[in-house]
């Protein structure tokens, strides 16, 4: 279960960011923001590296004391970042991957929604509920 989920546009500004607990949101802003460096590095390395790097899931971006940050970049250069608690060791790679898949599916739906203007903040409630489903429950 994630503590923070973020969707970042190709121009590197946030389209959607939600974290639990919500009062310390700024901290997560910082975390996700700095993780973009790593994302960019990984993406630009694709051309030079081997073929198996071509999948959309980027894996663990970097660990901090309390959190682990995972990344995923779509072909349309939209980045998804999920931050999970370090102490949550039960989360396996596959689970993270499936979380990203769900996010991507939901995001595609948002994109195809005629009321959504690409580049705007995501306000779709359907997307919100998908994200809530994968976040840690607030206590």
């Amino acid at each position: 279960m994630a503590v923070c989920v973020a969707v970042i546009a190709k121009e590197n500004y946030p389209l959607y960011i939600r974290s639990v607990p919500t009062q310390n949101e700024l901290k997560f802003h910082y975390t996700v923001h700095t993780s973009l460096d790593v994302v960019e590095e990984k993406v630009s390395a694709v051309g030079k590296a081997l073929a198996d790097q071509r999948e959309l899931y980027l894996g663990l971006l970097y660990p901090t004391e309390d959190y682990k940050v995972y990344g995923y970049v779509t072909n349309s250069k939209v980045k998804f970042v999920i931050v999970v608690d370090s102490s949550n060791t039960s989360l396996r790679d596959n689970e993270i991957r499936s979380m990203f898949r769900k996010l991507h599916n939901s995001f595609t739906d948002v994109m195809c929604n005629p009321f959504y203007n690409p580049g705007d903040a995501i306000q779709s409630r359907a997307f919100d509920s998908v994200v809530s489903g994968m976040m840690v429950q607030a206590c």
Binding site: Y13, P14, L26, H29, Y30, H33, G119
Partner: peptide, 12 residues
């Protein structure tokens, strides 16, 4: 054009 960068962070 669109806003560059992260607004929340920038404001802080």
């Amino acid at each position: 054009g669109t806003h560059h960068g992260w607004a929340a962070v920038q404001m802080r």
